[in-house]
């Protein structure tokens, strides 16, 4: 890897998700590729959900951090293939999510039964005695739950 590519990569990998600021786009698996051609950089990202409004902010943040480390010419490309999956969330990302109070997704959940009840462990007390309040939470990628042991509500990252 060239020095320039390493510098660009380090800068881009540190960009965080505007809605879950403890996760970088590398942790999330949203960052797919970085290429350098002369002085211009091409960064490929993929959305978690097709309508994810954070994508525009992420693209702007990538342009900003790259300009700061000496790459004023940036092209951010969005790709849909292969489709993002929660399996791309890194182990480090899962730990950071739980520490932030969001239950990480079950690995390799795949397509669940239509009426299956997801019961993530409470990110605060670890209890498995939880219930889902709503399939849809504060952002497209999260659902809303309640811990029956410590009584705290919490967000869970949807399996996908």
């Amino acid at each position: 890897m060239t020095d320039a590519l390493a510098r660009a990569r380090a800068a881009v990998c540190a960009v965080t998700d505007p809605e879950i600021p403890v996760l970088t786009i590398a942790d999330l698996g949203v960052l797919r590729d970085i290429r350098i051609d002369g002085t211009s950089v091409e960064v490929t990202i993929t959305p978690t959900y097709t309508g994810c409004p954070a994508m525009t902010v992420i693209a702007l943040d990538i342009e900003t951090v790259l300009a700061r480390v000496g790459f004023p010419q940036v092209r951010v490309v969005t790709t849909l293939t292969p489709a993002w999956t929660t399996d791309w969330l890194t182990e480090d990302g899962r730990r950071k999510l739980a520490a932030y109070g969001i239950a990480p997704p079950e690995p390799a959940a795949g397509r669940r039964a239509l009426f299956g009840e997801p019961r993530p462990a409470c990110p605060r007390c670890g209890s498995l005695s939880t219930e889902q309040i709503s399939e849809f939470g504060s952002t497209a990628c999260k659902s809303l739950h309640r811990c029956l042991a410590c009584r705290e509500p919490f967000d869970a990252f949807k399996c996908h």
Binding site: P47, Y49, T50, G51, C52, P53, L80, I133, S134, E135, F136, G137, S138, A140, L144
Partner: peptide, 20 residues
């Protein structure tokens, strides 16, 4: 409130699909 979030989220998914 939960339904407010749900319908807005579903609308967002659909508009995202439309854009693509």
């Amino acid at each position: 409130l939960e339904e407010e979030l749900a319908l807005a989220n579903i609308a967002l998914d659909l508009i995202g699909q439309a854009r693509a």
